[in-house]
């Protein structure tokens, strides 16, 4: 709080520009542009989405307009596709969270050990996070999972097994595999940072007392990681609720609606069927879902924040 402290008596009175009220105004002036654009970025689309969700608004049927009341929402909740998409959204979320958090925790402990080439191995392991989603999805679909030309098929044939047509037989699991591959490195990176801040003396003391590796993990490492794990879960949830590109380039939500999640459903409503009102109602649901998580995330981060 440098501004608030009174100037030393010995120093000559500061020039007018450096006086206290000026600085405070200057501070506001510097902050204002960011606040204004973010406020606009948040409020305008939000209000429009809410507004459209109560309107009849279809780009291919301009005759039907006006206030729709709850019609868009009623149409949404009576649409079986909506419930399937909600289910798929939650399945993707739960499955990817499980794989990345469990895998990330175990790998963080492994990469916390000293072993030859650890730094290179770590760089390789976190690399998938930097691959753009469209590339990951297409590489997995074509180069790895393709039943005839893919690597997995070749391996299966090598063992004398029938290759699996992943995207036809297990479409949702295939999408989950791709997304988990992208996010496992993220969990590993965050959790590794957290593990490294663990006090080694504590573990040493536990070891002296006769705690085995497993006991050390469950009674010291895991409690220490609990905060980092909850942050990973919340941040991943924000992104995983709206997985889009991976589905867009691999299955387009199909076969049928097997891989249609909420994000893809809204996209299809808006930009394929031009149903602005219906898509907006879906958008409102997505916003509410994300905000439930965001509430806890912001609170958890706020507790740590020192201003």
């Amino acid at each position: 709080m440098s501004v608030a402290t009174a100037p030393d008596v010995q120093t000559p009175p500061p020039p007018v520009e450096a006086a206290l009220p000026m600085s405070r105004n200057a501070g506001r002036l510097l902050l204002a542009p960011s606040v204004i654009v973010l406020l606009a970025w948040m409020i305008i689309p939000l209000v429009m989405t809410l507004w459209f969700s109560f309107e009849y608004y279809n780009l291919v049927n301009p005759t039907l307009t006006g206030f729709a009341g709850w019609d868009n929402y009623r149409y949404l909740v009576t649409d079986p596709d909506f419930w399937v998409s909600l289910e798929n959204t939650l399945i993707i979320l739960a499955a990817v969270l499980f794989v990345t958090v469990v895998g990330g925790t175990l790998l963080a402990v492994v990469f916390n050990q000293n072993f030859p080439g650890r730094n290179i191995a770590r760089v390789l392991a976190i690399s998938p996070f930097f691959v753009m989603p469209t590339v990951s999805a297409l590489v997995w679909k074509n180069l790895l999972m393709h039943p005839i030309y893919g690597v997995f098929g070749a391996i299966a044939r090598g063992f004398g097994l029938q290759p699996v047509d992943w995207f036809a037989q297990f479409p949702l699991a295939s999408v989950i595999a791709i997304v988990a591959w992208e996010w496992l490195p993220f969990a590993l990176l965050i959790l590794l940072t957290a593990v490294q801040s663990l006090d080694n003396e504590q573990r040493e003391a536990a070891r002296m007392d006769g705690a085995g590796v497993v006991a050390q993990f469950f009674f010291i490492t895991l409690p220490h990681l609990s905060r980092a794990i909850s942050v990973v879960i919340m941040i991943e949830t924000i992104f995983l609720l709206t997985v889009f590109a991976e589905i867009f380039v691999t299955t387009s939500g199909g076969p049928g609606n097997a891989t249609t999640n909420l994000a893809f459903l809204i996209y299809a409503r808006a930009l394929l069927q031009y149903d602005v009102g219906g898509a907006s109602a879906g958008g409102v649901v997505a916003i509410i879902l994300a905000n439930i998580v965001a509430f806890f995330l912001v609170r958890s981060i706020g507790r740590r924040l020192e201003v």
């Binding site: 960011s34 606040v35 973010l38 970025w41 948040m42 305008i44 689309p45 939000l46 429009m48 989405t49 459209f52 924000i238 609720l241 709206t242 889009f244 909420l262 994000a263 809204i266 996209y267 808006a270 930009l271 602005v276 898509a279 907006s280 958008g283 409102v284 997505a286 916003i287 879902l289 994300a290 905000n291 998580v293 965001a294 995330l297 912001v298 981060i301 706020g302 924040l305």
Partner: peptide
């Protein structure tokens, strides 16, 4: 904290507008 919360708005929720 408010700035952070704007990041939580799912893009698909505001795709239409």
């Amino acid at each position: 904290l408010w700035m952070l919360s704007t990041k939580m708005l799912p893009p698909v929720g505001v795709l239409v507008p």
